[in-house]
Nucleic acid binder design. Structure first.
Length: 563
RNA sequence: GCGCCCAUAGCUCAACGGAUAGAGCGUAUCCCUGCGAAGGAUGAGAUUGUGGUUCAAUUCCACAUGGGCGCACCA
């Protein structure tokens, strides 16, 4: 890109590459700025303003630079602006336009594998808003890495093993009923789980009963095994239904229980590495600057981290990934710090291990939603509600649509809103769940982006005799703004991978749509008598549509032809 | 007690150490006999506090204040 060649040119001229080229927020100020003057001023102990003037003088007489930039000016101490010549701006735009299938695609990840673990469904618990963040962020990141040319393994690491199932089995044995369970499996299992924790407060001996049932399960007790399988099958059927609505699918669905058989081998390998210690009857690994990791309980049962170590071995051996992303909530930060530390001790650190953390979804009162207390917002309820509302909206805004169309559009708009609402925010912060904001289809929302796409597409469809346009005819402020924004698309995707977050892409798309809407309102396109200008504008709109469509696709959101 | 994360407008959120701190909701005023008003335009409105580093701090560091999460037999 022009920016890179500019940087190279300046670096060779001043023998200094420790400076930045910035893209200013307001195009009236210029196209690119550098802060070279300050750095040189400091080194030479000269006044930045004076040195800046000298730099401007030198650069304006540089042939290569004056060919590409119409002017070089000093706007503030240290800030030198370069105004790109129109022909070069358009040349860059054409490059992107010509190669439209590879928007944002680069060779960054060619040939390398990245495993993205996300979703993390739990058996016996319905999917709730907590799973939603992991699922949406994980799926979006997987799309980003795919776009950057990585080979991506999407992995749903199911929470299907552990003491909680002992508790569920215990609860089922005491209060359970096969017929009631069959009628409403998820509701019944949740009730049992909640009831168990309520009763636990009154009779603490239940705790050991739950642990005992899990130990039996882990030792292959046939009755418990059968119950566990039944719970698992009900849960997976429910999960699959929900994932289909969300439009998310996985390459690997493999949970903790899959490592059940290799756990003793895993523990042996830890012992062979000489890092396994006895402590208070349990087996632990001591870590530097961290609390010890508990590998085996005093009753012999294994723990979460034991299974995660086994899984990590499996992942590295089977896929040789260059990165493994764990898209898991903030609360588990310590667990992953411990896991990564253990991995290092065991020599399992060939892959870059990253915990992509995100904040909690809080209830409307700003308080924590706790499954144990039955205080959850179920995903099913949420998606039903949002899709219904979207349908209602579609009907109200566009009465000419048939029922079938309304249903499809409602689903796309509703699920889009659900996803975008999450992705536009910085992942670290907790989200206070708010129905009104969630169901607001105006402003910075997925519907706004989908609406913009439809509006622009409408123009393209109305013109029958369009021909390839000449983008050098596009001179207005609104048009230049859009063209510059289009050029930034690849960067915004790369930033997502650098930060392991998607809000920069969401923000980028919103800003592009905003520019496009401003242009739309300010300029009539179809009836323009100047056919060449019209064609140039159509070409630009076509490009914007492509960026919106591809960008939203990365976020896991679909576009529509009508809305 | 120790560790990690967070603090920006009335509310919900943005801002690779960079220029005049951006949006949405709400609010005030305006724009459909004009390619779809789920839109556009114009306002009012903000960096928790005190120091430090830097040419430049919402951003980095220290302390204070206020929240959240976690800290051995849960996941």
């Amino acid at each position: 890109m022009l920016k890179d060649s500019l940087k190279e040119r300046i670096a060779s001229k001043f023998k200094e590459d420790n400076f930045d080229i910035l893209t200013p927020p307001d195009e009236k100020l210029g196209d690119y700025s550098i802060n070279l003057a300050f750095i040189l001023a400091k080194k030479n102990k000269t006044a930045p303003m004076k040195l800046g003037e000298e730099i401007v003088k030198t650069l304006s007489t540089d042939k290569e630079i004056s060919k590409r930039f119409s002017s070089v000016t000093l706007v503030a101490p240290g800030f030198i602006n370069f105004f790109i010549k129109k022909e070069f701006l358009q040349e860059e735009l054409k490059g992107i336009y010509k190669d439209r299938d590879s928007y944002g695609r680069s060779k960054i990840g060619r040939g390398e594998t990245v495993i993205v673990e996300y979703c993390g469904t739990n058996i016996a618990k319905p999917m709730h808003v907590g799973h939603l963040r992991s699922t949406i962020i994980g799926d979006g990141l997987a799309n980003v890495y795919k776009t950057l040319g990585y080979n991506v393994i999407r992995w749903n690491y199911i929470g299907d093993w552990g003491t909680q199932f002992g508790k569920l089995i215990a609860a089922y044995k005491i209060w359970g009923d096969k017929d009631i369970l069959k009628k409403d499996p998820m509701g019944t299992m949740l009730d049992l789980y909640v009831k168990f924790h309520q009763e636990l407060k009154l009779s603490p001996e239940l705790e050991s009963k739950g642990q005992e049932e899990f130990r039996k399960l882990e030792n292959g007790d046939p009755e418990n095994r059968k119950l566990w399988e039944m719970f698992r099958d009900y849960s997976m059927a429910d999960t699959d239904k929900m994932l289909e609505i969300l439009g998310v699918s996985f390459d690997v669905v493999k949970g903790e229980s899959a490592y059940e058989k290799v756990l003793s081998k895993t523990i042996n390998s830890i012992e062979n590495a000489g890092i396994l210690k006895e402590s208070e009857g349990a087996q632990i690994i001591e870590l530097e600057n961290l609390p010890p990791a508990l590998i085996r309980k005093s009753d012999g049962a294994t723990l979460y981290i034991t299974r995660d170590i086994a899984s990590l071995r499996d992942r590295i051996k089977s896929y040789k990934p260059s990165k493994i992303l764990y898209v898991v909530a903030n609360q588990q930060t310590l667990h992953f710090e411990q896991l990564f530390a253990v991995a290092k001790l065991l020599g399992l650190d060939q892959s870059e291990l990253i915990h992509v953390k995100f904040g909690m979804v809080l209830g409307e009162d700003g308080k924590k939603l706790a499954t144990r207390e039955g205080k959850i917002i179920e995903l099913q309820e949420l998606s039903d509600k949002i899709i219904d509302l979207a349908k209602e909206r579609v009907k109200e805004k566009n009465s000419s649509l048939g029922d079938k169309e309304i249903s499809v559009i409602g689903k796309t708009v509703g699920i889009g809103a659900l996803k975008y609402n999450d992705l536009k925010q910085h992942p670290y912060s907790d989200i206070v769940f708010n129905w009104d904001a969630m169901l607001d289809f105006s402003g910075n929302s997925a519907a706004y982006l989908q609406y913009t796409y439809v509006r622009l597409l409408n123009i393209l469809m109305k013109v029958k005799d369009k021909k390839k346009g000449d983008s050098s005819l596009l001179n207005s402020l609104e048009e230049e703004r859009i063209m510059k924004r289009i050029l930034l698309f690849p960067e915004s995707i790369k930033k997502c991978a650098d930060l392991n977050s998607l809000n920069s892409l969401a923000l980028y798309l919103y800003e592009l749509a905003n520019d496009a809407n401003r242009f739309y309102e300010s300029t009539r396109i179809i009836e323009d008598k100047d056919i060449n200008l019209r064609n140039a504008r159509l070409m630009m709109i076509d490009t914007v549509c492509g960026v919106l469509k591809n960008g939203l696709k990365i976020l896991g959101i679909n576009v529509l032809n009508r809305i």
